[in-house]
Design a protein around this nucleic acid. Structure first.
Ligand SMILES: [Mn+2]
Ligand SMILES: [Mn+2]
Ligand SMILES: [Zn+2]
Ligand SMILES: [Zn+2]
Lengths: 151, 151
DNA sequence: ATACTTATTGCAACTTGGTTGCATTTTTGA
DNA sequence: TCAAAAATGCAACCAAGTTGCAATAAGTAT
């Protein structure tokens, strides 16, 4: 039996929701992913596994998000990304390449780092802090250098 | 002559683009705003001033953004917000109330604060760091307390 | 295993946000 | 004031996401 498939089954079982092929498919995609996934990416990968309607995918993502199985990662271009939200994958900053659009996960902040971010005078109840860093990834930066050399 | 109107005129002049009523209208709305504005808010406020088409508004916002007159502020719900990008209004974190959706501007980070956020090993070229904090604003927190007391 | 109940999916229709091409109007600058 | 250039408005279009409901699949008790 597939290792990932087992994890996916357990997750749905623990959440107390039905184990449908579509949900297992989505969950396995997240479990295998190393970066946050856009909706279109999920759609493509899921299509290779199981028959599904776009409405179903929206509902599954919304359900998983509400159950805390996945979390949403906001990005510049308004496209929504998602990633798995397990205990060993706490909230962390993301790097967003302006050129290729790729999102990569960065190391989570330490407690003292995150405390520095909040001005103590602000009397807000903080739920969470999202940090997103934009720039050029290593690949795109090198490509740009080559480009410049050519010109 | 209106003070803000004057600022708006100068901004367009400096950018070297035509001074149309629609652009002046949008600019004055931004100059008067204390928080980032959503598209729908801008639309409403502009409609009270001048006749315009939605296409025009999209084009103006896109133009202003490219010229660096305004900047985009990403938010949780995928709705795009914009704020004026003058020298005395540098990039800064935002607080986003989960209950009422309100976005408020926070103090900009100091250089040492922002440097702490980047793990030195990451070989990315950083363009800018966006910090967005979610939680409950003072008003909504109090309302929640009252709610709880009632129950 | 079967039958019943409940949850989930697929489909179609619709809403909303945003884009494109082009004719009309406005602004600019001579 | 007038011609050239720029910006706007309009209509048509596209894509993303939502809703209601009937068909189907999963859970559950017998
Ligand atoms: Mn991540
Ligand atoms: Mn701000
Ligand atoms: Zn890149
Ligand atoms: Zn609030």
């Amino acid at each position: 039996m597939d290792e990932k498939h087992e994890d996916a089954l357990l997750t749905l079982q623990h959440a107390g929701i039905a184990k449908t092929p579509q949900r297992l498919g989505v969950l396995n995609i997240f479990l295998a992913a190393k970066t946050p996934l856009s909706l279109s990416t999920i759609k493509k990968r899921l299509a290779a596994k199981v028959r599904f309607d776009k409405v179903t995918l929206y509902r599954i993502l919304s359900l998983f998000k509400n159950l805390g199985i996945i979390r949403e990662v906001t990005s510049r271009n308004g496209v929504n990304y998602f990633e798995i939200a397990t205990k060993d994958n706490p909230v962390h900053p993301h790097f967003n390449c302006l050129n290729c659009g790729m999102l990569t996960c960065m190391e989570p902040l330490t407690f003292s780092q995150s405390r520095q971010l909040i001005s103590p005078k602000e009397d807000y109840h903080v739920d969470h802090i999202e940090i997103s860093i934009t720039g050029l990834c290593a690949g795109c930066r090198d490509a740009t250098k080559l480009q410049k050399r050519k010109n």
